[in-house]
Design a protein around this nucleic acid. Structure first.
Lengths: 337, 337
DNA sequence: CTGAAAGCGCTTACAG
DNA sequence: CTGAAAGCGCTTACAG
């Protein structure tokens, strides 16, 4: 059962390999009936063009890379599947690549990926999308790439993002409207630009409602469960503890929930907890989390879409801002009287 | 900044390209000093061999495929990273591929992946590792593959697994030793062979301790949270509800936890809940889950290792059985008096 | 609208 | 121990 080649198809269809190539690549200048004959032959032989041959001969590999660092599993899988789904529509394949290192080492790692695999372009997820060193190297390399949730919006490369600041502001206002005045906040990982945007949104809501910002109510977290647990413990054992805590992602919010349970503080009766992202865990913890739905799948799908478009047209880069959505569940409520 | 080729390296080192090729592939018959010269030149030029060229010219692509269907995010990411880690050690790259369809359609999907990407071998995760149609097609194709947790242990291809039955038996005995006599069980997805193994282990423990098996206490689940929630509600509203529930994975156990919370049944005081897998969620729900640690990362690492070995040697296939571990946390305790 | 030739960057099979 | 030639399966650039 040896692999069929373009020659087999050409022979079966009674044409030259160039014609087969034309049909397969949807190039013009093939008579409809010739095209049909080639297609039939390819179908009959179950022909699959060799990616390596295409990649070596042509200037395109039909391969796209998705690079990431160390996001939470749920977020990562959504990114992957969003990007894969878009690739599949165009017969592209996706290389997912977990990067290592920072700065120069990171850049070397990614450039190595590019040189070895000949990917046509890259989808760069946060926080890699914020690495100035990497972005510069990619620029210099001339390889098309699209960033997800970047920090530098003035850069020429396409990107997709959501309004992190607005979403955080809206969530904070939800808590304020519930009647909370003393609200704790857990900042995300310092390497993620989104962290500062979410903090900014939180502060903006306080200001708008003329609630004083109390630094004691703000803790640094790292987007992981344990950091939320720890911050939660600290906040809830404050002399004057907050009646609500807004964590910058769901994992940390789950940590706050556990801290509350440990301290036998009922949620939401005596404490409201809000998260961010609306990942799987927001729906499986108890009580289920009020959170901001971040469209991770769509962000990746859309980023891949922009990448594919720019590969086709070489056009001016575009951007896309995707909508978020406040999801109210059982973890938030008015404070106890 | 055009890509460096083997010719550039050959020129810089003053040798023929064949010699560069030898050095890069660790072939014998190169004088140490020649080798050193080539290595230095490659390093200086930051040379990265083209995967497509290697793949097209040689019989190896240095590419491995990890195929999966639709596992939970945490499990999937562990598999991916385990396989990637082993690949990286050998300068292989990993293609992760989410399969679609069943039976013939599935097979076509995977064969398409093979034909297009020229992967050297496949790591086949459950439940694909149980698809007779796929396995047969792979056999016929002559492509090396390693199965994770297969159902057919007599097949000649290598596999890795863990003792699902023994683990389930041990967990059930833990509950029995706590003093539980009426124990609910939630079966995993019917397409997964592990589901029946875990059920078998559960029943074996009951028998061993002469506890009657009550079909009313056993519910069918599908390895997803919602199915655990539903099964949990049914079990806990039984006229004579169980004092402990053993779910075949953590996601479903989290569902049982939520059902208990809804019904205001304190865990573990009035209900013990046990899971299986020890994924991330086991540590973030409340109370944290007593569960079986399934070595997913290691399973994938080990599967990839077997695959790489068989690619090198063409040797007789091997198998590996990895150890599991009972993890006791706060969700299980003796029943209320 | 169609095709014959050259070449992508490597490895294989062979020669020395 | 080292190298010159042929070829992997496609696409590019060109010719008709």
């Amino acid at each position: 059962m040896t692999r069929k080649t373009i020659h087999d198809v050409a022979r079966a269809a009674g044409v030259a390999i160039k014609t087969v190539s034309r049909v397969l690549n949807d190039e013009p200048n093939v008579r409809p009936e010739t095209r049909a004959r080639v297609l039939a032959a390819a179908e009959m032989l179950q022909f699959q063009p060799s990616l390596s041959a295409r990649s070596l001969a042509g200037r395109r590999s039909y391969l796209i890379g998705l690079v990431y660092e160390n996001p939470s599993a749920n977020y990562l899988v959504e990114l992957q599947h969003g990007a894969m789904a878009r690739c599949r529509q165009e017969k592209f394949r996706l290389f997912v690549h977990q990067c290592s290192g920072r700065g120069e080492e990171l850049t070397r790692d990614v450039i190595g990926l590019i040189d070895q695999t000949h990917v046509d372009g890259l989808v760069v997820s946060p926080p890699l999308s914020e690495s100035a060193h990497l972005i510069e190297a990619l620029d210099q390399r001339g390889l098309p790439f699209v960033r997800i949730a970047p920090n530098d919006l003035k850069h020429v490369s396409p990107y997709v993002d959501m309004d992190d600041e607005g979403a955080a502001r809206e969530m904070t206002e939800h808590l304020i409207e519930c009647g909370h005045r003393r609200i704790g906040f857990i900042i995300g990982h310092p390497n993620h630009f989104a962290s500062s945007l979410r903090l900014r949104g939180f502060r903006a809501a306080l200001e708008r409602h003329q609630i004083a910002f109390d630094p004691a109510c703000v803790k640094q977290g790292y987007f992981v469960f344990e950091s939320g647990l720890e911050a939660g413990r600290e906040l809830l054992t404050l002399p004057d503890p907050p009646t609500a805590v807004f964590a910058s992602n769901d994992d940390m919010a789950a940590g706050v929930l556990l801290a509350a349970h440990e301290l036998a503080i009922p949620v939401p009766q005596r404490l409201s907890v809000a998260g961010f992202d609306d990942t799987y865990i927001a729906r499986i913890v108890w009580p289920r989390l009020t959170t901001v739905h971040q469209p991770s799948y769509d962000l990746a799908f859309s980023a891949t879409d922009l990448l594919l478009q720019s590969l086709k047209s070489g056009d001016a880069p575009k951007t896309a801002r995707l909508p978020y959505k406040l999801i109210r569940r059982e973890s938030t409520a008015p404070p106890a009287p």
